[in-house]
């Protein structure tokens, strides 16, 4: 499925619009990763466990959005936006949304 974060798809023509589609996932870290992150917090630097965790959940949110778009009969999503919010201590929501469209060459 084609995805862009601009309003069009370069080189293709949008022939129909299926409306807004979104995907979201709420994740929390697990104790082992949190322990490692606690240690890393003393030394500073990248928290690889968290990077992977958030990357995984973002992947899942995108997948959910694509599923929704496919259900609506779209073959592309334009104007995709990412957003993260922490709903509780230790839990983060990853939210992806965009506009499902049908494109033709």
């Amino acid at each position: 499925m084609l995805m862009t974060n601009i309003e069009t798809i370069p080189g293709k023509q949008i022939v129909a619009c299926q409306g807004v589609v979104a995907g979201s996932t709420v994740r929390t870290k697990h104790a082992g990763r949190d322990f490692m992150a606690g240690i890393k917090n003393i030394f500073g630097g990248e928290l690889r466990g968290y990077t992977e965790l958030l990357e995984e959940s973002r992947e899942q949110a995108v997948k959910r959005m694509q599923q929704q778009a496919t259900q609506l009969g779209a073959n592309a999503v334009v104007n995709v936006r990412f957003s993260t919010s922490s709903v509780a201590a230790g839990a983060a929501e990853i939210y992806v949304y965009g506009t499902a469209v049908t494109v033709a060459d």
Binding site: L2, M3, T4, N5, I6, E7, I9, P10, G11, A37, K40, N41, I42, F43, G44, G45, E46, L47, R48, Y50, T51, L54, E55, R58, V80, F82
Partner: peptide, 25 residues
């Protein structure tokens, strides 16, 4: 939203990169 210069686009892909980084004590 506009590319710089004239380029003939054949394909476009949504790309992203992320990092979690912590400050030291």
């Amino acid at each position: 939203e506009q590319p710089i210069g004239d380029i003939s686009v054949q394909n476009c892909v949504l790309v992203r990169g992320s990092v979690v980084i912590s400050v030291d004590y």
